[in-house]
Design a protein around this nucleic acid. Structure first.
Lengths: 149, 149
DNA sequence: TGATATCCTACTAAACCAATCGGAATTTGT
DNA sequence: ACAAATTCCGATTGGTTTAGTAGGATATCA
């Protein structure tokens, strides 16, 4: 049971943008360098975040991307769903009622996948970009301590 | 974010075995027919459930599979993990501490995946085969009512 | 002995993933 | 006006995974 790299990279990108939010448009090149990801590949991902209204783009030289909302108003769930598609552990999870299958037993097991899917959504929707920012700052502090010892 | 068919079929198989638990060994052929799945494909999955101690096999004519434990002692999480591998939404989720990545930001995002993974495991480990049995009986009852109306 | 099973391994077509590539359009700075 | 930087867009590709097929060896029952 895996997310693809898309969701993971997406969260990394958004956090990177959040960390440099004050510096104006951030180029994908710099994100790719810091995060050690392929710029070309990110180029494929970020437009989807833009179309979803999570980032804004500035074209041309000195252009780049900025968050479209405040970090506390962006949750990780949106980022993941944009890039990974709906969180449906099996195909019929988010279909309605009986139109997904004829087998009684399957529809019983369907309850399992619905619960799993609800639980994942709850977790990722309860984490905002601001939460990650806080964690990142804290972690930096700990790093410092380690290095200073 | 998807499970493969392996986990889904696995739960279907186990529930099917549970529903026919009193009838002695159940052949994969009959499971495949009832669940409308490929017998050959199931033949690939069920031995893994056997090696994991979830079912027992009886070889030869009139042979088949039976649950290795009582339905209330088998949880869905075990079934899924056997067939799908560990529930780790991204690669480093279940690695320890710092040996997975050098990037601070990535390790911050790692917390997200750990929480997701914990949450999924909690859900699937809280559902036993006996729970699904109960749900299946109830659903059958409802079906009956619908048909009798 | 024959039918019915599990068991085991190899193979395959299709889909998906992660990444690469090439080039068009847009904007900034000189 | 021009060059550099950058987003934008679509096509292509190599590799892996998925879902299923196929064939035969082994075991058991009637």
């Amino acid at each position: 049971m895996r997310f693809s790299t898309r969701g993971r990279y997406g969260v990394q990108i958004m956090l990177d943008l959040a960390l440099h939010n004050a510096e104006g448009p951030i180029s994908l090149k710099s994100v790719a360098e810091r995060q050690k990801l392929s710029e070309n590949y990110l180029e494929q991902l970020v437009p989807e975040l833009r179309k979803a209204g999570l980032v804004k783009s500035v074209r041309g030289s000195q252009g780049g991307y900025v968050l479209a909302k405040q970090p506390e108003d962006i949750n990780i769930g949106d980022v993941i769903r944009v890039l990974e598609g709906p969180i449906a552990p099996v195909e019929c999870t988010n279909q309605t009622g009986t139109d997904c299958c004829e087998k009684t037993q399957f529809c019983v097991t369907r309850e399992v996948w619905v619960k799993v899917s609800d639980s994942i959504n709850n977790v990722v929707d309860s984490i905002s970009l601001a939460d990650l920012l806080k964690a990142a700052e804290k972690e930096d502090g700990q790093m410092m301590n380690i290095f200073e010892e």
